[in-house]
Amino acid sequence: MANDDNKRLAVLIDADNAAPAIVEGLLAEIAKYGTAHVKRIYGDWTLPNLGGWKEVLLRHSIQPIQQFRYTKGKNATDGAMMIDAMDLLYTGNFEGFCIVSSDSDFTRLASRLRESGTVVYGFGEKKTPEPFVAACDKFVFTELLREDDEGETTARKSGKELRQDAKLVHLVRLAVDAAADDAGWAGLGAVGSTIAKRAPEFDARNYGYAKLSGLIKALQLFEVEERQIGDGPHKAHYVRDKRAVTG
């Protein structure tokens, strides 16, 4: 098995539910989770609406898979992606799958892949139905990845705005509590992992922060401490709920 930093990944893109403008950001994001050994995109390439993909596919060596629409109103692309995903799963060559679509039809596929022990990363627009989002280990909204005029620049929320988000505060506090030692301190990495398990769609960038550490500092509800790791140059962040000190 590959280590966590170099998972062998299969990237499957639904061309009908994704835009060429996300590809640069998409592949950069995927590189954080592993190496894309397979990159395939599915659609009916005889249709003019997919013409904008050609240059992008050539530049990034993404293999287009032709899927004719046999019946009007029916999406044959979804079926082709699902069949290929299962074929790739049964090879045993992949630790993770990246499903790029905003279509709820892939909910069962994501669940089935996870049942087999593989990690599933979902990528789709904010309109993606919650069941598909929840079926993934991690879900990234593609509005964060676009490189055209439609790409969103998320305004950074102030500490006051963040603290008014009861769901966010509850989520972070639960994660810190779950990962905390007897003194109440929790490693930031463990906190992030716990949050991801509870809310696959969570991303500090959705609040205007590049990293989780910046978001937690901005909340001003937690103590944040940087600690040296051994004798090397590496440091780690630890956080503690301020209520653990004053309570």
Score class of each variant (00 low, 15 high):
Glu24Ser: 14
Gly73Cys: 10
Phe94Tyr: 06
Pro64His: 00
Gly117Lys: 08
Arg108Phe: 12
Ala210Asn: 09
Pro131Phe: 03
Ala204Val: 08
Glu223Asn: 10
Val56Met: 15
Gly208Arg: 02
Cys136Met: 06
Leu215Cys: 04
Asp105Lys: 09
Arg59Thr: 15
Ala236Gln: 15
Gly96Asp: 04
Lys126Glu: 14
Gly124Arg: 00
Leu174Phe: 10
Ala31Val: 05
Gly208Met: 10
Gly189Ile: 01
Gln228Ala: 02
Leu113Asn: 11
Gly192Gln: 01
Ala175Ile: 02
Leu215Ile: 14
Gly34Phe: 07
Ala199Glu: 15
Lys72Gly: 03
Gly247Ala: 14
His237Gly: 06
Lys32Leu: 15
Ile83Thr: 12
Gln164Thr: 11
Asp203Ala: 05
Pro64Tyr: 10
Ser102Asp: 05
Ala80His: 14
Tyr209Arg: 08
Met81Trp: 02
Phe141Met: 15
His170Gly: 14
Glu152Asp: 14
Lys217Asp: 09
Gly214Lys: 03
Leu9Gln: 02
His60Phe: 15
Ala183Arg: 13
Asp84Cys: 09
Asp16Arg: 04
Glu225Lys: 13
Glu223Ile: 13
Phe222Asn: 06
Gln66Phe: 12
Ala80Trp: 08
Phe123Glu: 05
Tyr33Lys: 04
Lys72Trp: 00
Asn6Ile: 11
Val140Glu: 05
Phe68His: 08
Asp177His: 07
Arg205Gly: 00
Phe94Pro: 09
Arg146Asn: 13
Lys157Val: 12
Asp87Arg: 04
Glu161His: 06
Ala190Pro: 11
Asp231Glu: 07
Trp53Met: 01
Glu143Trp: 07
Gly151Tyr: 13
Ala190Asn: 09
Leu47Trp: 10
Phe139Val: 00
Asn206Gln: 13
Val191Ile: 05
Asp14Ser: 03
Val119His: 13
Glu55Leu: 13
Ala85Glu: 07
Glu143Gly: 05
Ala186Leu: 11
Ser116Pro: 08
Leu171Asp: 10
Ala2Glu: 14
Arg163Lys: 15
Glu125Val: 15
Pro131Cys: 09
Pro233Phe: 01
Gln220Glu: 01
Asn6Gly: 09
Gly184His: 04
Lys242Leu: 15
Phe97Lys: 08
Ala135Tyr: 03
Gly43Asn: 11
Ala183Pro: 08
Asp84Ser: 01
